[in-house]
């Protein structure tokens, strides 16, 4: 595989990996990232970084990624390590076992969800509410629902189940608006895959549930990892670091604590800029809300955002240093 990819390496047209719909070309940011021979982590170098039984020389790989990102042909494989799904010191055999266990776990959760809402895993999804706030099924008001393969029996009394079901149409409304410029999401099957993963995540992490923006975080995993369960686990590991951003309390969304950190940093290093921002929106730094919530996905092209994440993960940074990095970016 690596041989075929390699002979045309350098200045390669990466758009072919994540093709954009022709009619959307004008609407998407220009791609700046280019794979560079000798800098970008290539398939060949990636495979060479494993010992015979599968130990990965992660330090070597990280150095390479920091210099030039990861070649699209191996992004999914590398991301599983960067996100912490697998220990670089484990063997091929150990990882295979973990992978199988995780796939089974995902399948079990999916079955749980399917038993409540059968459209899960059907290749279709919903964009309209299926229950009322007080748990009454809405199927009667929508005759099509029966044909579409979901139906919910009786009133829902379990609070956890109800909370989860109330969020499902919101996921659908967002899925149809996620990275629609990519050819990949022209396929309803791929959209449904994104919906399934988000629906199941919000079932498993019912404390946080689904919050708008998670779709932007999850979408690349669906694109990069072919197996749905593997994509789920990448997303789940990403959310381990990000989930507090999405926690909502009265008067506050988690990410705002980062905004206040950012505000403190700017106030210290550039008081004049801080004053200006204070004059504009009262110093709440809401303008940076989206940047931090979905990690600059909206500020850059798909490919460039992935590159930024790779470099970012490479630094293993914490929340505070993320804000510091933001300052560097500005």
């Amino acid at each position: 595989m690596s041989g075929i990819l390699f002979h045309k390496y350098g200045g390669e047209d990466l758009d072919s990996y994540y093709p954009i719909r022709p009619e959307c070309q004008a609407d998407v940011p220009k791609v700046r990232f280019k794979a560079r021979a000798g800098k970008t982590l290539s398939a060949r170098r990636w495979h060479a970084a494993f010992s015979e039984d599968g130990h990965l020389d992660i330090a070597k790989v990280l150095r390479r990624i920091q210099r030039g990102g990861i070649h699209p042909s191996i992004k999914g494989l590398v991301w599983e390590f960067l996100l912490g799904c697998y220990d670089p010191n484990s063997t091929f055999e150990e990882r295979n076992q973990i992978r199988q266990q995780r796939r089974q776990q995902y399948a079990a959760w999916k079955t749980e969800c399917q038993n409540i809402v059968p459209i899960i895993g059907s290749g279709k999804f919903i964009t309209a509410a299926i229950v009322t706030d007080d748990g009454q099924s809405l199927q009667d008001s929508n005759r099509d629902s029966l044909d579409q393969g979901w139906h919910v029996d009786g009133a829902i009394s379990d609070k956890k189940v109800l909370q989860w079901m109330l969020g499902l149409h919101q996921i659908g409304l967002d899925v149809v608006r996620t990275d629609r410029s990519l050819v990949f999401y022209e396929s309803e099957t791929n959209q449904a895959k994104l919906w399934d993963v988000l629906a199941i995540y919000s079932w498993v992490d019912n404390d946080i549930g689904y919050v708008q923006g998670m779709n932007d975080i999850c979408s690349p995993m669906i694109v990069l990892l072919e197996n749905e369960a593997d994509a789920f686990w990448c997303f789940e590991h990403t959310m381990r670091r990000l989930r507090e951003n999405f926690r909502t309390n009265t008067g506050m969304i988690g990410v705002q604590s980062q905004l206040s950190t950012l505000s403190q940093i700017i106030r210290t290093i550039d008081p004049k800029l801080h004053q200006h921002l204070e004059d504009l929106d009262g110093g709440e730094y809401l303008f940076a809300f989206r940047m931090l919530m979905v990690l600059f996905r909206r500020e850059f092209s798909f490919v460039d955002a992935l590159y930024l994440w790779e470099v970012r993960r490479n630094l293993f940074f914490t929340y505070l240093s993320f804000s510091e990095n933001l300052v560097l970016l500005c």
């Binding site: 608006r177 996620t178 708008q212 932007d216 990410v255 809401l286 303008f287 989206r290 919530m293 909206r298």
Partner: peptide, 12 residues
Amino acid sequence: SLESKSTIGVEF
């Protein structure tokens, strides 16, 4: 835009 994205937080 027919391909508009969901709004995250606040935009101006």
